[in-house]
Nucleic acid binder design. Structure first.
Length: 525
RNA sequence: GCCCCUAUAGCUCAGUUGGUUAGAGCAGCGGACUCUUAAUCCGCGUGUCCCAGGUUCGAGUCCUGGUGGGGGCACCA
């Protein structure tokens, strides 16, 4: 791939630096005393006013990426960005090592270079707290120019305007490193995501639930309805599946005597991509012995309340034009009531064919392969779910949809299950876990029948080992699954799952295509 | 898999009913400048107009096919 003029210029700078005896990629540690934000805070600390008579100037050593460079002959200003923010640096020829300013700083350093700066804090005539540099060290040379965005604050209105903002999603997702370097607010999203995960772990650990790890490579897949990725183990010469859920392994651990276990892990589902779906995604699963789905609703309320408060200081979370309230308790609504509210149709007790007719009346496409459960799910997904903006527990699903959930204690044909919907999307799925081994075997066999009838998401194998575990006796338990990515979307107000994944799945870039029949795929050049 | 939108300089974008040499700002290059902040001033345009065909005297512009990206549908307990 040919280099642009700007890339060539930077390579020339690199060569010139080496000729001048400056290592553009030095190994030695550059110990810092401050981040940019700390330095600014230190200066504005009124208890130690640095502008008061007789006060010693504050010495700082900082490190960061050079932003725009404004050279005015024998002095220059530039900003340096580190993880905390930016701070301006004032570099004067006569304050730096002899000849260095003209020969190195002006000619060979470029925006994007990583620099170490030593100096004292002062306030410029324009009022900006800055570092008056006594020493500037190149820490790492940048050979490829980052796009230049400039943000201006209008002094009268206080409004900020950004020029040349990089908005191309292709660029931002593919070159996430550049997106992050350019956009501190994108880094903030991922810091919030990390904090959310830490809150979840704190919350669960404080209840003495044990974080465990179960296989991602599985000889049989199960625990959800989804098509798996398949792979192959060479030494054992056997096919393996990437997990679509952790559920069946975690419940084996309840049999083994753990009373609370959870796992935060990637699941893999071989399905389409969308604003809400990535083929690999992060799932929290939690199983607690001797509890039921009612109890689990209260736990979820309490956990989400805490996540919202930790991230935002309040249970109110902005979601597009809405404000979601995660203050407990959340609304609870049986699925049949929810459907009746939105469509006027009471489906409880109706036969498969009656529901199919209603679905047709509502304008849904119905075909003969759709069972009662599937039809109800379709109606719910089309007419109810998108309208559930505030956090809402939808409860008591038809048994056909839930082969791993316990039958409802009083309602025939239903299971003790809930989903939490917020922002019009499913965030959690939970139930009182089915622990009757004989009922479980029957439901697995029903799934196998569905698979044979052509449902390519039904599991086509009975997991005999799981049934063996259940036969030893699994305590009654409540189980929960939380889509961490979707929760992160809601908690950080991001419209696409790609905005809460550092590296969402994209097609590989096609490289330069020499007309020689070689592979067109050259992802990273 | 289907439908719609979209692709022009490193970045953000303009480009007329098809018209001859494809432009602007920022970035970059050369020069001036010791408190600037989209620094300013003087000079310089750096391009596979996503790709491949086609229509035409002539295509960035129109047509067909393809590729990347976005949105929607389908799929997704």
């Amino acid at each position: 791939m040919s280099l642009t003029e700007q890339e060539l210029v930077r390579r020339q700078h690199l060569d010139a630096l080496r000729e001048a005896g400056i290592d553009p990629y030095p190994a030695a540690e550059w110990e810092t005393t401050h981040h940019a934000a700390d330095a600014l805070a230190a200066y504005s600390d009124e208890a130690n006013d640095p502008e008061a008579e007789g006060t010693e100037p504050i010495q700082v050593r900082i490190a960061g990426r050079m932003q725009t460079k404004r050279v005015m002959g024998k002095a220059a200003f530039f900003h340096v960005a580190d993880e905390s923010g930016t701070i301006q640096v004032y570099a004067r020829r006569d304050d730096l090592e002899d000849g260095w300013y003209n020969a190195v700083f002006k000619k060979l350093l470029d925006p994007g270079d990583w620099l170490g700066i030593e100096g004292t804090l002062f306030r410029t005539r324009m009022g900006e707290v800055s570092v008056h540099a006594s020493r500037i060290v190149l820490l790492s040379k940048s050979l490829k120019p980052l796009p230049v965005e400039k943000t201006v604050t209008d002094e009268e209105t206080g409004e900020t305007r950004t020029f040349n903002e990089v908005t191309d999603p292709d660029f931002r997702y593919r070159q996430r490193y550049a997106d992050l370097a350019l956009h501190p607010e994108v880094r903030d999203v991922f810091k919030k995501r990390a904090r959310m995960l830490r809150t979840i772990r704190d919350f669960l650990d404080s209840r003495d639930y044990v974080e465990v790890e179960t296989p991602a490579l599985q000889p049989l897949y199960g625990g959800a309805a989804a098509r798996p990725f398949t792979t192959h183990h060479n030494a054992l010469d056997m096919p393996l599946f990437l997990r679509i859920a952790d559920e069946l392994y975690l419940k084996r651990l309840l049999v083994g005597g753990f009373e609370g276990v959870y796992e935060i892990a990637k699941d893999f589902r071989n399905e389409g991509l969308s604003r809400f779906h990535n083929p690999e995604f992060t799932m929290l699963e939690l199983y607690v012995a001797f509890r039921d789905y009612d109890w689990m609703m209260r736990l979820v309320e309490s956990m989400l309340e805490r996540i919202a408060t930790d991230l935002h200081g309040t249970t109110d979370v902005t979601w597009g034009e809405h404000t979601l309230s995660f203050a407990a308790p959340f609304r609870r609504l049986p699925i049949f009531e929810a459907i009746a509210d939105k469509t006027g149709h009471h489906l409880r007790g109706k036969t498969r064919d009656e529901v199919a007719e209603i679905a047709r009346q509502l304008g849904l496409e119905v075909d003969g392969s759709m069972g009662l459960g599937k039809l109800i799910d379709e109606i719910f997904g089309e007419f109810v779910e998108p309208h559930l903006i505030q956090p809402t527990f939808i409860t008591d699903y038809p048994v056909e949809l839930s082969p791993l959930a316990k039958r409802h204690r009083t309602e025939e044909g239903l299971v003790e299950r809930f989903e939490l919907i917020a922002g019009g999307k499913e965030l959690c799925n939970a139930f009182s876990e089915l622990n009757d081994p004989l009922d479980q075997r029957q439901r697995f066999e029903d799934q196998v029948t569905l698979a044979k009838e052509g449902d390519d998401e039904a599991t086509n194998t009975v997991d005999e080992d799981y049934l063996r575990a259940l036969e030893y006796g699994m305590p009654p338990a409540a189980g929960l699954g939380v889509g961490i990515d979707r929760l992160a979307m809601v908690m950080t107000n991001q419209p696409s799952i790609r905005d809460v994944l550092l590296f969402p799945l994209l097609r590989p870039e096609t490289g330069e295509q020499p007309d020689n029949g070689e592979s067109p795929l050259a992802p990273y050049m």
